[in-house]
């Protein structure tokens, strides 16, 4: 297992390297330099000041060198300075990261809590009316735009005082109840579409597993129905659901960006949007880099969870 983790961790390096290339060079494609943009908001600079600014903005060197310097900086946690406020980017990111992470995690938990039981129930009553309804419901869930759902929630529930608390973000560790109250609807808006994906996968996977010989063996042993379904079948049926969860984690991370905007939550997504509206490229680069890294790490975690859940993976590791 240890070796597996190390190998997977090492495999992240080239991917993240590629991500950094894209993030750096795509921004370079934008017509006009960062310096010109910065100057657009400032008063005229003297030639001496220009030289100094060029050095600060790194426009005195060839692009590959600049990339390497930038890469070195972000590896040290230095994401540069905002073009608009002149403040360091990293503290802003760090202060907004917890909210976005929490939002993503809550929506994942909600999606699994809704999707898995519905999927199981649906598979056990295959082709019944309830199954029919949940299949249609699943497709409908896939078709709902998260931000529209969020807007409807705001519209409906803000009529009831306290259902969607307004005001500043409260950390879970300061006031768990207030925190959950604040994030419940946003998480639901992000998670419902994903719950539909999870439900469909769970259903199909359960239907497949329930046909397996080992389920017959379990029944022939005289096991009670719950232990056949929730132990013997689910332990196998959950495996593809784990994979799809990792694969679709981007849906949740991306969803957080839009939903933060709708619910006016001060997370990474709002920071990114603000930066885009303001053309504040260092912040955009930082946010994209951080979210992509998170996504890659989440995928790694899902792979590890999968390896823990499926003993056949570990053997492959030993053999190779």
């Amino acid at each position: 297992m240890g070796r597996y983790v190390v190998r997977r961790l090492l495999s992240l390096i080239p991917v993240l390297f590629g991500v950094s290339l894209i993030v750096f060079f795509l921004v370079r494609l934008i017509p006009g330099t960062a310096l010109e943009m910065y100057l657009g908001t400032q008063v005229e600079a003297t030639p001496e000041q220009m030289e100094e600014l060029k050095r600060i903005f790194g426009e005195d060197k060839p692009v590959p060198i600049l990339y390497l310097e930038w890469l070195g900086d972000i590896l040290r946690g230095d994401f540069g300075y905002s073009l608009r406020t002149g403040r360091m980017v990293l503290p802003d990111i760090l202060s907004r990261l917890p909210l976005s992470l929490e939002l993503t995690l809550f929506s994942l938990i909600l999606a699994l809590l809704i999707g898995i039981p519905l999927g199981i129930a649906s598979s056990l009553r295959q082709n019944s009316f309830g199954d029919f309804v949940s299949r249609i419901g699943g497709l409908l869930g896939l078709s709902l735009p998260q931000f529209w759902l969020a807007a409807l929630m705001v519209m409906v529930f803000s009529r009831f005082r306290g259902w969607i608390p307004m005001g500043n973000y409260v950390s879970f560790f300061d006031s768990p109840l207030q925190n959950i109250k604040m994030l419940f609807f946003p998480s639901l808006a992000i998670g419902i579409g994903f719950a539909a994906v999870v439900m469909r996968y769970t259903r199909n996977s359960m239907l497949e597993v329930l046909q397996m010989d080992y389920i017959r063996t379990a029944k022939a042993k005289g096991l009670k129905k719950p232990s056949v379904i929730y132990f013997h079948a689910l332990k196998n049926a959950i495996l593809p659901v784990i994979t799809v969860t990792g694969f679709n984690a981007g849906y949740l991370l991306g969803g957080a960006i839009v939903i933060e905007e709708v619910f006016a939550l001060p997370g990474m997504g709002r920071l990114a949007l603000y930066a885009i509206y303001q053309r504040d490229y260092p912040i955009i680069q930082a946010v994209v880099m951080v979210i992509a890294t998170l996504f890659v790490v989440v995928n790694l975690i899902t792979d590890l969870v999968y390896a823990l859940a499926d003993p056949r993976i570990r053997l492959d590791d030993v053999v190779r």
Binding site: Y214, R216, K235
Partner: peptide, 24 residues
């Protein structure tokens, strides 16, 4: 009937690979 299965009457199946649960 369930209480008879495995206790009084038990079965062996054809393909032991697919008849054993792979993750237990």
């Amino acid at each position: 009937i369930r209480t008879v299965r495995g206790k009084h009457i038990s079965m062996i199946f054809q393909d032991p690979l697919t008849s054993l649960n792979p993750v237990i």
